[in-house]
């Protein structure tokens, strides 16, 4: 068998492997949970923030009290004058994400109004907030390291397909 043929078979096998991987092994629910958790972990570990992010998830329900019941929220924030933060919403189904996005929009708008008066250097960071919605999940990442955050969330999107 020629090398060309071998390479062709190898490529075909790899393609099959990718298709199988993307279509998922096991339940869709397991893959979605795995990917979201991994993505959240990457956002927290691989993205550069101006200060360490603290887990303030216990307070997130109050801040986003206008989202639908049953939405799980994880929130990590730098605090103080810095607006660096990661927020992850996971709803029971995709119908809740519109409400989540509206709430996020109001939240970021209020951060911006505050920043304009007290911390103008934070306004650009807030303008560039990375917000991505995937089915029943919404990710929010506020950072100067927009490129890394964006690429992490793009990979998640591809994984999610």
């Amino acid at each position: 068998m020629s090398i060309k043929k071998l390479l062709g078979i190898f490529a075909a096998v790899m393609m099959c492997a990718v298709v199988i991987a993307l279509s998922g092994c096991g339940s869709q629910e397991t893959n979605e949970a795995f990917n979201a958790d991994e993505t959240l972990k990457k956002l927290l570990e691989d993205v550069r923030y101006e200060a360490e992010l603290e887990d303030v998830s216990e307070y997130a329900g109050f801040t986003f009290s206008d989202v639908a019941d049953g939405v799980d929220i994880k929130m990590y924030a730098a605090g103080g004058k810095l607006n660096d933060q990661v927020i992850f919403f996971k709803a029971d189904d995709a119908s809740a994400t519109e409400g989540i996005n509206n709430s996020v929009k109001t939240y970021i708008e209020s951060l911006k109004n505050e920043a304009k008066l007290y911390n103008p250097e934070e306004v650009t960071k807030l303008d560039n907030a990375v917000i991505r919605t995937y089915d029943n999940c919404v990710f929010v990442c506020i950072t100067n390291d927009v490129e890394t955050a964006g690429s992490i969330l793009t990979v998640f999107f591809l994984f999610f397909l």
């Binding site: 307070y59 109050f62 801040t63 709430s103 109001t106 939240y107 209020s110 951060l111 109004n113 505050e114």
Partner: peptide
Amino acid sequence: SKSNIGKLN
């Protein structure tokens, strides 16, 4: 202010 009330909480 949603964010400030969140911080107050």
